[in-house]
Design a protein around this nucleic acid. Structure first.
Lengths: 211, 211
DNA sequence: TGTACATCAGTGAACGCGCGTTCACTGATGTAC
DNA sequence: TGTACATCAGTGAACGCGCGTTCACTGATGTAC
């Protein structure tokens, strides 16, 4: 039952999309090839026609999950000015913490990546670099003595850590979880050179474009 | 073949210790009860005499891994003055990144905890709180406008994120991995109110005890 | 445009294997007398 | 102190199940003539 090239490409994309969502929700080890194939409305045999192994699919799913599959990046297309305040507000929000299915793949799987093969690590690194560039382009002046690139690296790692910790504490200590999000948001905004914002004030000073 | 109470308690401790090490190295989903029992020189049946389930053992192993099983905390006993600089230097070092077996359980499993049950989350929260207290007690003055507790929360989450990201990038981009460690170390030291340090200068100004 | 056939995406049964958990049993320990 | 026996930590076979991967097969697509 051969199908058209277009349909085959669609199926391949479906597998990646389903894998990205399921890996974010249940971890890479927590999802089987049967689950992924089923979610993509295919059989596991079809999965192996497109990818040599589950780990190869994981590498592609992670790449997708940090680019096209990134909810925030998608909403950004029309926005011309990178805005760290907006990004932090989204990324370190209870909404982003709780919506694993469409959240940042890096935060969802951070501690698992190091145990996968190099291709998975490479996808993470690429996604991480993209995110650092996005942050670096939106940095303002800061009292912190460090180059924009150094600050951007630390900010992104701290964002990922903040969400990972907020998720880890959510079940047993929901208030602690929100304190972590709030504190991380506030301090990263300061490092980034944003003006400190109160929780009631929703407007953020636009920072000058660095690029 | 009943054994003494003392030996039984030892065996229980062995199971927790073995579980803590193996979970750190391979993730909670990446280790089976057979592996843990074998490492503790017991059979899996004995494991179930001590713990109702693998997840219950995971909760205890995580609690152990953030307290008695924490390499840094152990070396601290004699030290009277909490020193954030020393802590950051250890925690955000390539050595700590690479030695999973004896590293911080929170950084090793951060993104997996949210998928386990509440008992595991509770162990994480407790370990996290302990670490926040340790950091808070060693905070100096800072240009960053936030309370000591807020700064401590953000610093600890960023430490965990820094190590998780450094591990995730290590296989594909070792230089990036070290940059992440260095940048996170430098910026957290500044937030903590330490004097900025060059990489060649190994001595750190002792900060005043907050407690 | 029509025919013949090679291609290959997708199917589904089967592979060996390890998973978490249960349970009947063992036998030295710990206790009651 | 000596005897009788209940306790229970630990053993190891067995449970059903899902895992990642392989492979013979199908049949419409895509291509060569």
């Amino acid at each position: 039952m051969r199908i058209t090239k277009e349909k085959a490409a669609e199926n391949r994309a479906s597998l990646i999309k389903a894998a990205a969502r399921l890996f974010r929700e249940h971890g890479i080890d927590g999802v089987g090839v049967a689950d992924i194939s089923k979610a993509a409305k295919l059989t596991h045999g079809a999965l192996y026609a497109h990818f040599p192994s589950k780990e190869a699919l994981a590498a592609e799913a992670l790449a997708y999950g940090t680019k096209d599959g990134n909810e925030y990046l998608k909403s950004l297309d029309k926005d011309d000015d990178p805005d760290l305040g907006k990004y932090l507000e989204y990324y370190l929000s209870p909404r982003h913490r709780d919506n694993l299915a469409v959240s940042c793949s890096m935060a969802a799987s951070a501690s698992e990546i190091g145990r996968q093969d190099e291709a998975v690590s490479a996808s993470f690194s690429e996604g991480f670099n993209d995110m650092v560039e996005l942050v670096e382009a939106s940095l303002g002046d800061s009292a912190v003595q460090a180059t924009a690139h150094e600050r951007a690296l630390a900010i992104v790692a701290a964002m990922i850590g903040g969400v990972a910790v907020a998720r880890a504490t959510a079940k047993s200590r929901p208030k602690l979880s929100e304190q972590v999000l709030r504190a991380t948001r506030a301090i990263l905004a300061e490092i980034g050179g944003m003006e400190p914002r109160t929780s009631s004030s929703r407007t953020v000073r636009k920072v000058k474009k660095a690029a």
